[in-house]
Amino acid sequence: MIHTRASEIAVMNVRWLCSTTLRLVKKNKLPPRPKFTKEMEAQCEEKFLHGGRGPGGQKINKCNSKVQLKHLETGIVVTCQETRSRESNRKIAREKMALEIARYLNPDSSTDARTEALQRWVVQGKRAKEKKSKLKYAKHEEERQSKQQESLRRDAAIIESL
């Protein structure tokens, strides 16, 4: 028992060494999004933009609810009108702001860890797809050749029988 287990481990190690040195990115295990903290909330000024002049209230039926967040210290401004709901727009704006602040605090890297991981995940998916299609065509090619040989052999058999 012990022997087999040890050999199994040995095999696994070998396989690990043989595979790509770059760890694969998993979509469900991405680095976390930058968090919007309570301190940030205090540093931010929130505004709701509804297109200024003209009649309001019952006279007009505007569906847009644009939320604008301004980080007073750095002057970063983000807006959001992704959804029709003001509440979810406020949430999304806060996520965006946290991302922008993380980028501001870490200007060397062009993007944050999560975006980078996501980009790698996309590339990885593309590579996997390429590999899959290559394998598929190789298999098709093989099948075709074996069929050809089969028919050749059959022809040869017929000729021989004649």
Partner: peptide, 27 residues
């Protein structure tokens, strides 16, 4: 749009909207 889609978000609620009833406003 609210009559077409049938609803309007209102705070955390989703309010159904139908003809003959006023659509909730953002104000």
């Amino acid at each position: 749009l609210q009559y077409v889609l049938g609803s309007q978000p209102f705070g955390e609620l989703e309010i159904l909207c139908k003809r003959n009833v006023l659509i909730p406003r953002w104000e």
